[in-house]
């Protein structure tokens, strides 16, 4: 059984009367890349800030490697590299000065910071106020990763990054995972979570709806399927388990599918195809589907 790195128990935070998160029980294990998935305002950032000791819980607790996130906040920070959702950096400092400033708390990681910056193609000589949104995000990533912590907590890590830099970040995170680093990251980008995560936690309205291994979620989430046949489509497509929203217009069919693709493809390929496209349904569709059918069962 792998070691538990992050543990929350009955974690609850209210903002006045508004629920931030409620009774959140979560475990993230050593060496796994855990994706925290949910729409905006679901409670992802609140959970992360509670784990980081930025917020004081109203009830329950969060701990990192057995250290209480609020009481032992300084010790926790020694173990964590943190990327906030909207990184705010000192605008009058240069990237280099910020790397040195952050390094001054732990020490000896400046070279690692410079190497990361080079890999992300970030110019550290410019002042932060002159950085674009994407450059600020890159610098915040450098600051989070430079001390090579055993735990990375990243709130929407690819926000503002171009596709090439996103790819570089995915590579870095995979390398860190292979080196034994545990990663908790939040996202509302389903393909990104699918690509990176070993497990995913889905949060809605401050409540953890469920945690799933990514293979299981992949099997559950919705796809849009469109097929054009040379002649009439085969019979029985709409009766395949997992098919919904079936529509036919002449030789062309459209449907939504949720489940094992092999069972569907077995039926679809019964006649000559002219074209076939299978795409991820929108995140919203996937969420609605997931919550609608299993929301009450996964807890």
């Amino acid at each position: 059984m792998p070691e538990t790195v992050i543990h929350t128990e009955g974690l609850t935070k209210y903002y006045g009367k508004v629920v931030g998160v409620q009774d959140l029980d979560l475990e993230v294990f050593q060496g796994e890349l855990f994706g925290f998935l949910g729409p905006n305002g679901a409670g992802k950032t609140t959970t992360i800030r509670l784990i980081m000791g930025m917020l004081k819980p109203n009830r329950g607790s969060a701990s990192v490697k057995g250290l209480d996130a609020w009481q032992k906040s300084v010790d926790v920070k020694r173990l964590v590299g943190y990327l906030p959702g909207e990184p705010a950096l000192y605008p009058r400092m240069t990237g280099e000065e910020l790397v040195r400033f952050v390094d001054s708390f732990d020490g000896g990681r400046e070279a690692s910071g410079r190497a990361l910056a080079a890999r992300l193609e970030l110019d550290l000589d410019r002042k932060v106020e002159g950085y674009s949104r994407g450059m600020k995000q890159k610098l915040a990533i450098v600051l989070a990763l430079m001390k090579d912590p055993p735990l990375l907590i990243m709130d929407e890590p690819t926000n503002g990054l171009d596709p090439i830099t996103q790819h570089v970040l995915y590579e870095i995170l995979n390398e860190r995972r292979e080196g034994g680093t545990t990663v908790l990251f939040s996202s509302h980008n389903l393909p990104e979570v699918e690509r990176l995560a070993d497990r995913v936690g889905i949060i809605r309205a401050g409540t953890l709806v469920g945690t799933e291994r990514i293979e299981d979620l992949r099997g559950k989430h919705l796809r849009n399927v469109e097929v054009i046949y040379a002649a009439d489509p085969p019979d029985g497509i709409d009766r395949v388990e997992g098919v919904s929203g079936f529509e036919r217009a002449g030789n062309r069919i459209q449907l939504k599918f949720r489940g094992d693709l092999n069972s569907l493809l077995g039926v679809l390929t019964g006649r000559e195809l002219l074209d076939l496209s299978i795409g991820h349904a929108s995140l919203e569709d996937a969420f609605l589907e997931f919550y609608g059918r299993e929301g009450g069962e996964t807890r």
């Binding site: 980081m52 000791g53 930025m54 906040s73 300084v74 010790d75 920070k77 020694r78 964590v80 943190y82 906030p84 909207e86 990184p87 705010a88 950096l89 000192y90 952050v102 708390f105 732990d106 915040a140 600051l143 989070a144």
Partner: peptide
């Protein structure tokens, strides 16, 4: 207000 306290407190420094 500026958000930089989050950067500061993400380092091993006590309040």
């Amino acid at each position: 207000h500026d958000g930089t306290m989050e950067l500061l407190l993400s380092q091993p420094i006590s309040r």
